[in-house]
Nucleic acid binder design. Sequence first.
DNA 1: GGCCCTACTTGATCTGAGTCAAGGTCCTTC
DNA 2: GAAGGACCTTGACTCAGATCAAGTAGGGCC
Lengths: 247, 247
Amino acid sequence: MSTQPQLCHSNCDDCPIRHRAVCAHCDKDELEELEEIKYYRSFEAGQTVIWSGDQMSFVGSVVSGIATLTQTMEDGRTQMVGLLLPSDFVGRPGREGAPYDVVATTDLVMCCFRKKPFEELMARTPHIAHRLLEMTLDELDAAREWMLVLGRKTAREKIASLLSIIARRDASLTKRGMSGPMVFDLPLTREAMADYLGLTLETVSRQISALKKDGVIHLEGKRHVTIPDMGRLMEEAGDDTDGGFLV
Amino acid sequence: MSTQPQLCHSNCDDCPIRHRAVCAHCDKDELEELEEIKYYRSFEAGQTVIWSGDQMSFVGSVVSGIATLTQTMEDGRTQMVGLLLPSDFVGRPGREGAPYDVVATTDLVMCCFRKKPFEELMARTPHIAHRLLEMTLDELDAAREWMLVLGRKTAREKIASLLSIIARRDASLTKRGMSGPMVFDLPLTREAMADYLGLTLETVSRQISALKKDGVIHLEGKRHVTIPDMGRLMEEAGDDTDGGFLV
DNA sequence: GGCCCTACTTGATCTGAGTCAAGGTCCTTC
DNA sequence: GAAGGACCTTGACTCAGATCAAGTAGGGCC
């Protein structure tokens, strides 16, 4: 039973993350209430967590693994509209159906709250509602940032944008900081990257090869990436700002 | 002084729209409080309402005219990330700077609330906070829908998608309904459409001509559009759903 | 160790949309 | 009613990225 206001509801000590939606400032009664409606769910890589149109019976956060939000057209063209990394929140309080598929890209563990009672608690607890609004605004900013990437950037810039987003997220998650070279494993296949960037997997592969040849990134195997110079990568991405976005 | 719960704060009778963010269920005291912090602003076509990075001192709704949210890269490439039509809400309660430019595309009138006191009222008034969360979720859905358009649709599908969005918005605004042919004026130049769709203005022009030649739309002059068959248009847009999205 | 399978790479070719350029249309202003 | 200008259209050509088609690399399993 943690009592620091920073930590979220009590038992989440066994999550590596805290529920960012419901952390901070929750008092003891609220934490206990949350505890009662909390449960864990696991998914295997490739499993669909929620189908587009389905009822969502929970809200929650990713504990470990990666999930994606994807939209699909009748003819099979797909576009990822969001990437969920550990600590990211999933859920649409007050909404019924999901407007996209949520798919586990790797093995996935989520920490969930039952939706109905969560919504009731939210209605009674302004600071939770406020926190959710903040998070939704963050997601909206990220989505709009991504619209610029999809609409106006070249294939090379798109790849650089994706890599810099993943690098920054990884740095903040592992608290390794952004100074010096960045090292991480790509959490996505070439195809998933293509679906996120509105490209084909062949183009993704070619551009990654090109960035490697030009020394912007190093690759060990197919997934292990080293970025010797983040500034250089961000130039390649066409980013003027140093702000960091992503769902 | 309207007392119907449906109508928003009292004096907004002189807006053709009601503040959707703060409408319904506001009691008399709340309406009076809103009244005190309300004011109108007008902009000429082409004027920038808010520059990216600026402090936003208000939240509000479009009364008449069109505004766009646009992001610009250093080299001048621009992408519209949102379209604000009458009754749409603008504002980021709890946020400081704007992450994009807000530009008046036509002459524009907005009905605004001063931000600080609005936020204070919101903190005290759960149903306003709740309404804002709902609206933000709507915008997020619209943004993600648009990511599919930008990432995966052809030029022809993009144009058809934009036309069907405008047609639907127009129908709901004028309460004219969706049965029979739809008639409306395009509120955007070819260039603005291009910036919204991630295309060039030449491609927009060519695709509009093509849709006209194929009888999907009729054009009188350059802006006055008739859509004889919405179903046909939505097929052209590649939409399976009949759901209607947009910021 | 050899086999298979999935993930990835690379090459050759094609094509949709961009670029560059030349008009056309219609509105405004004097 | 002529001149100017914003907005739009259309044509010719180019090119980035898609498509089609072989491959290679590496991990798991018998």
